[in-house]
Design a protein around this nucleic acid. Structure first.
Ligand SMILES: [Mn+2]
Ligand SMILES: [Mn+2]
Ligand SMILES: [Mn+2]
Ligand SMILES: [Mn+2]
Lengths: 244, 244
DNA sequence: GTATAAACTTTGTCATGCCTAAGTTTTGTT
DNA sequence: AACAAAACTTAGGCATGACAAAGTTTATAC
């Protein structure tokens, strides 16, 4: 059995090597809250055990074996978050810390029971895909909110950061998974983005917007991109979504 | 924060000192699956931290502080078992092993959410009382099944051992929490006890019967004790222990 | 191209929690 | 009382996983 530490290191390397090609010692250390010396030691251990390859002074990369472990842990983590949200009604900002510990303690049997109980779900409460038992994930065509064009409409499908403060901030703004949005204005120089969310108009920083993933509606034929700050009728979206 | 090991040691000492006055090194070691030398070391550590008193060559006794920890852990353990049974529908033989690990990983916040979700329950799926936040437990007036008299009727309210084999055996016999039983026969020399359970008649060993707690019905005025279904039933076991 | 800074590794140390082997105390015979 | 067995403690060691300090490599600045 792998220790909780090892599982967390593997998860961290996986997450980091997903943007960049490789996970640097420094970033792993930051993510896990340990010193770089400890990371070097663990990378060597992981390499010795066949979970990762160590390129000295160049960081770590997971082997196939390591990736399998990582996806297994992500599956557990996300199922646990969804399970806690579904049963105890925890809000999305309360989930991560508990899941981070429980992922190492919940038995495989329990995980599979949760999976069935939840109806074989595809996504967790943050909109992230839940890897299947064999490690495949349903990908989703979505855009970063900060990259939408003026007038675009869409629906929030996922949020990256797991910082509770950030998630509560989004909740305050009425932004949650499924929220419909319309881009009203985009200030230049990485300035704030103004959105229509439900009946409210909000401004959100570039930083935050980049952490929000949106599925953009296909433009309706004949629909004009609305001019910014202009009063408009109801937004036209071809697709009939359940409305609120 | 206390380590999982320490929490398990404290729980073990609590359980052991509840029968006997004191928890011996040997029995703690057996219960936790470690060697006696390890137990001695840990007892000294617990004593140094104020959770227990060590009487060398005489075992360990928890301090008030230690007892508080023990009751807290028992509360967690039992709430987790009930929560898993209620949500995922795990049967009583599947609960203990998972709870034994989860009790160390679930946050206080989650425990309290479970407590509310479950409607502030008093008993776990094995019928054991769940300590309240302040450490008090609802006691229950019940008798060991092996001490019932011939003709007694009652309801199963709790089962001690947590061995899955044993619990599945009881399930096969139709014995679960709430099952109504009637004592049909008691063989002498610690022999089997014959019971009516629902519409079935079963025989259960003395050993097993001692692990089953029953709340005995008050005898109805005018009700006859049914005759044991033995023809030559006169070598009757001595009836009535502590009754009435 | 050299100097400095940043990233990284190596070495040695420490706390936990377990074990084996050896020694001590208690208990149970006879 | 005397001896053996059982229960227990002590001493020494090992694995894990963290850290600090010191040394090395790579990147950046001038
Ligand atoms: Mn999470
Ligand atoms: Mn974790
Ligand atoms: Mn249990
Ligand atoms: Mn435990």
């Amino acid at each position: 059995m792998l220790s909780a530490s090892i599982e967390d290191y593997i998860k961290a390397i996986y997450a980091l090597q997903t943007d960049r090609e490789t996970a640097s010692t420094k970033r792993i250390a930051e993510r896990l809250g340990v010193k770089m010396a400890s990371v070097t030691g663990m990378i060597k251990h992981l390499a010795a055990e066949g979970y990762a390859k160590h390129k000295p002074y160049r960081g770590a990369v997971l082997t196939e074996r390591g990736k399998r472990v990582a996806l297994g842990m992500i599956r557990r983590h996300r199922l646990i978050e969804l399970f806690l949200a579904s049963t105890l009604g925890l809000s999305w900002d309360e989930l991560h810390a508990d899941a981070e510990l429980l992922e190492h303690a919940v038995s495989d049997r329990l995980i599979e029971r949760m999976f069935e109980y939840l109806g074989r779900p595809q996504f967790d409460p943050h909109g992230s895909p839940i890897p299947s038992r064999d490690g495949s994930m349903t990908p989703r065509h979505s855009s970063r909110l900060d990259e939408l064009a003026l007038g675009d409409t869409g629906k929030v499908v996922a949020v990256s950061g797991r910082d509770p403060e950030f998630l509560r901030y989004l909740t305050d703004l009425n932004l949650r998974i499924g929220s419909k949005i319309l881009v009203r204005d985009r200030a230049p120089f990485n300035g704030p983005i103004t959105l229509r969310v439900g009946s409210r108009t909000i401004a959100i920083g570039h930083e935050a917007a980049a952490r929000i993933r949106v599925s953009v509606d296909a433009p309706t034929k004949g629909a004009r991109k609305p001019k910014p700050e202009v009063k408009r009728g109801s937004r036209t979206s071809r697709r009939a979504h359940k409305r609120r």
